[in-house]
Design a protein around this nucleic acid. Structure first.
Length: 661
DNA sequence: AAACAGTGTCATTTA
DNA sequence: AATAAATGACACTGT
């Protein structure tokens, strides 16, 4: 465990710890981030927009939460992922991540964690954990969430209604937190968890070095077994190893908390919190009134949350087997994670652990898909959400809170980290903007890592708490919450992304598709299909690749179509010009011909006049039937008797006379 | 702020 | 039937 950040005056702190769990041969790495935020009272006052309503304190969480701030939204129908993110009291954002296996959904817990130096100095109690979690299924969202649903991230009442309708339609989709209302089922599950935790603690006593060795060995085995894995999977293994290395020297979180007096939240008193117990007390000692596990209730225990469904990687059975057969056990020292309350939600009761786990797969992929949605066209303020550019058939009317995290030890700053969340509807504009960095400026100082293409995604919905800002980009403030408009939001989302990449390219990279967009688009259909079959690609990857291919081809087709249309227009315009010019030419010719005709007519009239006045030797008018006019080449006109003209010539002359008459 | 062009995307039709 | 191409329509963005 490592304390990454101490409290700022108004900001939050981040605690990070890595936990390895093993249950029934299933090894799970948990990457825990504890986000410590000031109490809502402080945050509300500080973050209240001018003239605007107070923002729920838990809306400051860098995490999008299921059900929305205020519990307005149900989980997505497919979201049977184990999502601990009941916005408990909203004070402590406890992010639990699984690292050892691919596509482990991030599980999170929001709870209050209040830590006061003054109070600790006064009475020796420091951290407070409040955990009156509320169900994510729209039941409520904690102290602030339940009563302030509208102002929160899911504040749109229409969106809330819509989500509630969906929740009613598919009640089993909800896996949420139900804090402080553990049912009997919860108790049973909790007992199971405790038993597991006890065994875990036994193994925990093993030396750290042996664990590291085992872990390293496991990683090597995984790597060997999954030689055919795609690059991202291999990279993930390496990254996970590195992450463990980074976390290997982490001290006990709560010992650290109790031993570091500087870790405090200024201005927060213990009286503001629902629990009065130090963190270390709560986590390390069951004798204390409140411990973390009791303070935070879950619908499912962490073991269940971390266990992979056999269906999770349908195309990677080798890896799955290698992962599940590793009897490696390590638990959070001093933390009885298994005491998390089992689900109290009625909908959750109907779900077995296997059900939950089996639901992970689709949720994960859906979530990945939703990532692109969030990046692409998500408008948090819109009631009805629909993916603007996907015909994959995946519903985007999601309110579930699922996420996948692949992170390093510092989890939020890993450039290779890929985190996805589908909790888009619950990402209100406030949430999103807060995620960009408005509320946790300290986070930007925590991580100075290079930001990859996913940076924008992470900032948006991936819980990358770096919240770095570009130079010159003002940090969002409480006033910025009033900013609206999809364009502005999306621009802000991508402040840190590689703008040179197209959206599909970003999506492809986000999904770690091992092919370039150009390849996907350009390659023949046979090659494309064979490529899809040769590689281990998830449904979402395949779907995205097909979408990319379709969009890419259509884009080219549209460009060609427009170019062709433009060419046609230009050609038509040229043709019009040509025709106009020809028309003028013809008109000129016509005028010339008319003029010639008129001249000819005039000559004929003159000839007729002359001919009418001709007379023979006796002075009698010449009979036109007996004489004809004959023009010589020099224009001289002769009066010739018809009998002197050749027969053919005579006929010609007759015709001329007839026409003239 | 309105108008406009360019572009991407989707839905649909056509080849 | 599957696929690509073509195209109208729409939304978005930048000028």
């Amino acid at each position: 465990m490592k304390l990454l950040k101490s409290w700022g005056a108004t900001g939050g702190g981040l605690l990070h710890l890595t936990v390895l769990l093993s249950l029934a041969g299933l090894r799970v790495d948990l990457d825990l981030d504890l986000y410590l935020l000031p109490p809502p009272a402080l945050l509300r006052d500080e973050l209240r927009p001018p003239g605007g309503p107070a923002r729920p304190a838990h809306a400051l969480s860098p995490f999008p939460t299921s059900g929305g701030w205020g519990g307005a939204g149900p989980l997505h129908p497919k979201a049977r992922e184990l999502d601990f993110l009941g916005p408990l009291e909203g004070h402590l954002l406890w992010e639990v991540r699984a690292l050892g296996v691919p596509f482990i959904p991030r599980t999170r817990v929001d709870a209050w964690l209040v830590h006061s130096v003054a109070d600790r100095d006064a009475d020796g109690t420091h951290g407070l954990l409040g955990a009156t979690a509320s169900s994510a299924g729209g039941v409520g969202a904690g102290v602030d969430g339940g009563s302030q649903a509208a102002p929160g991230g899911g504040g749109d009442p229409l969106a809330a209604e819509e989500e509630e309708e969906k929740a009613a339609a598919e009640p089993t989709a909800q896996v949420a937190v139900s804090g402080g209302r553990a049912s009997q089922e919860n108790e049973v599950l909790r007992e199971k968890c405790e038993s597991v935790a006890r065994s875990s603690r036994q193994e925990e006593n093993e030396t750290e070095s042996s664990q590291e060795k085992s872990l390293q060995q496991q990683n090597n085995e995984d790597k060997n077994k999954t030689a055919d894995e795609s690059d991202w999977e291999v990279a993930k293994t390496t990254e996970s190893r590195k992450e463990r290395h980074l976390n290997g020297t982490d001290a006990d979180l709560f010992q650290l908390l109790s031993s570091q007096p500087e870790y405090s939240l200024e201005g927060v008193s213990l009286e503001d919190t629902p629990f009065q117990s130090t963190i270390s007390d709560g986590m390390n000692s069951s004798a204390h009134n409140v411990n973390l596990s009791q303070a935070i209730s879950h619908d499912v225990n962490l073991h269940e949350a971390m266990l992979l469904s056999p269906n999770t990687f349908r195309r990677d059975p080798v890896t799955r087997t290698s992962q599940t057969q590793e009897p490696f056990l390590q638990t959070l020292p001093g933390t009885n994670l298994t005491e998390f309350h089992p689900p109290a939600d009625n909908q959750m009761r109907n779900l077995t652990s296997q059900d939950l786990l089996y639901g992970l797969d689709a949720n994960i992929f859906d979530e990945i898909n939703l990532l692109s949605l969030a990046v692409e066209g998500f408008d948090p303020m819109e009631v009805s959400f629909q993916e603007p550019d996907s015909d994959s058939g995946l519903s985007l009317n999601l309110s579930h809170n699922t996420s996948i995290t692949k992170s390093n030890s510092y989890s939020t700053c890993n450039e290779d980290a890929v985190s996805y969340t589908s909790d888009l509807k619950n990402l209100s504009g406030h949430d999103l903007e807060g995620a960009v960095g408005g509320y946790c400026p300290e986070h930007s100082m925590l991580c100075h890592m290079d930001h990859s293409y996913e940076a924008g995604f992470q900032d948006l919905v991936f819980h990358n708490h770096t919240y770095h800002l570009q130079p010159g980009v003002p940090e969002p403030t409480s006033q910025s919450f009033s900013t609206s408009g999809k364009s502005q939001k999306m621009n802000r989302y991508f402040n840190n992304t590689d703008k040179n990449l197209s959206r599909d390219e970003r999506r492809a990279k986000a999904l770690r598709i091992p092919f370039s967009v150009e390849e996907i688009i350009r390659m023949p259909v046979d090659s494309f299909n064979s490529m899809l079959s040769r590689h281990y690609l998830t449904d979402l990857q395949v779907s995205l690749m097909r979408d990319i291919r379709r969009r890419g081809k259509n884009k080219v087709a549209a460009q060609n179509c427009r170019k062709r249309k433009l060419d046609i227009i230009l050609n038509l315009e040229g043709e019009v010009c040509n025709l106009q010019a020809r028309k003028k030419t013809l008109e000129r010719e016509q005028a010339q011909y008319n003029k010639a005709i008129n001249i000819m007519k005039q000559k004929l009239n003159d000839l007729y006049h002359v001919f009418s006045r001709l007379s023979d030797d006796q002075g009698r008018p010449v009979n036109p039937d007996q004489y004809i006019l004959q023009c010589s080449h020099d224009g001289t006109v002769f009066i010739v008797p018809k009998e002197l003209v050749a027969p053919g010539q005579k006929e010609t002359q007759k015709g001329k006379r007839k026409n003239r008459s």
